[in-house]
């Protein structure tokens, strides 16, 4: 009798899980499976599951091999690495500075902490479009500002040079990420005991020494998490790059953009899928590295 009840409980549980499970399977696992199978097939356009399965005997590694000879893919990989470096580097420096400022006691701190969240609430495509206007070579506000404060005497064409263009795009992306990073670091800073600073000050430690010997070691785990999240997010960035550059003159096509163009503009779903899996592999390596570092740290 007891086991019969358990059996019917299991059935009920399965029944209740079915709607959610079928959604997850239908909208997540199935497309993942189809894309995975398609990545081994040379087809110009997406297939339905049946056609993809029927085509399995024709599967091979051509798409993956081809990616290593694709100059645009290699260029987009390099551009992505550069973008990661810029966004993460700039992001950490700026966010750390803001977080330290916001950790101080001052009037209106709560309001500023709330206001700083605004960029995080802006949708990426809106952020990209806004920065397009900021960077406009003729009527852009950034050029006007730099000109008025005397830093430049001629307007800068921000997207004409590949390096400058990726830096400008990186700045626009960083602006959106700063609130998240700042709040994370700020949370880390709150955990540092004030007594440590007071003791250090009694011992004559200046701000820099206090930061190096107290703040930094205390927030290192948080920084590590923020850095890795930043790397993963930047790897997947699309909207800002699309709005700002769209693969224009500067050749700043990042990996995600190139995958989109292969799959949805050139209708090469097979090759696009293979590139998407390579991007996923790249991200996985970053995740594994993160877990390795974190677990090593906790072992210590």
């Amino acid at each position: 009798m007891k086991s019969g009840n358990r059996y019917s409980d299991t059935k009920l549980a399965l029944l209740l899980m079915m709607p959610a499970a079928s959604l997850v399977i239908g909208l997540y696992f199935l497309p993942t499976l189809i894309t995975f199978l398609m990545s081994f097939q040379k087809r110009d356009i997406g297939e339905n599951l049946f056609e993809v399965i029927m085509n399995i005997p024709n599967s091979n590694l051509d798409n993956y091999i081809r990616s290593f000879r694709d100059p645009d893919w290699i260029a987009s990989f390099n551009q992505t690495l550069l973008l990661i470096l810029i966004v993460t580097g700039l992001g950490i420096i700026i966010s750390l500075g803001i977080a330290i400022l916001l950790s101080q006691e001052f009037k209106g701190r709560g309001l500023i902490r709330a206001l700083i969240l605004i960029p995080w609430a802006v949708p990426p495509i809106v952020n990209g479009t806004t920065w397009t206007l900021i960077y406009h070579p003729q009527v852009g506000t950034l050029n006007a500002l730099l000109n008025q404060i005397g830093i430049i005497d001629r307007y800068i064409i921000w997207f004409i040079d590949p390096l400058l263009a990726i830096f400008a795009a990186g700045l626009a992306i960083t602006w959106r990420f700063i609130p998240f990073m700042t709040l994370f670091i700020l949370a880390g800073l709150q955990t540092v005991q004030k007594e440590l600073y007071e003791s250090a000050m009694v011992d004559g430690a200046n701000f820099f020494r206090r930061f190096v010997h107290i703040t930094f070691p205390a927030i290192r785990p948080v920084l590590l998490t923020v850095i890795f999240m930043q790397i993963i997010w930047t790897t997947k960035v699309f909207d800002e790059i699309w709005a700002l550059i769209k693969g224009g003159a500067a050749g700043t096509t990042v990996m995600n953009l190139w995958i989109y163009r292969q799959a949805f503009e050139f209708l090469r779903y097979g090759y696009g899928s293979a590139l998407a899996y390579l991007l996923a592999l790249f991200t996985s390596v970053i995740v594994v590295a993160y877990y390795y570092l974190v677990s090593k740290k906790s072992e210590r």
């Binding site: 070579p137 064409i157 921000w158 997207f159 004409i160 769209k246 224009g248 003159a249 500067a250």
Partner: peptide
């Protein structure tokens, strides 16, 4: 205008 290389459509220039 060298910025022409960065103008993607009519409303840019």
């Amino acid at each position: 205008d060298p910025a022409s290389l960065t103008y993607n459509w009519v409303f840019d220039f």
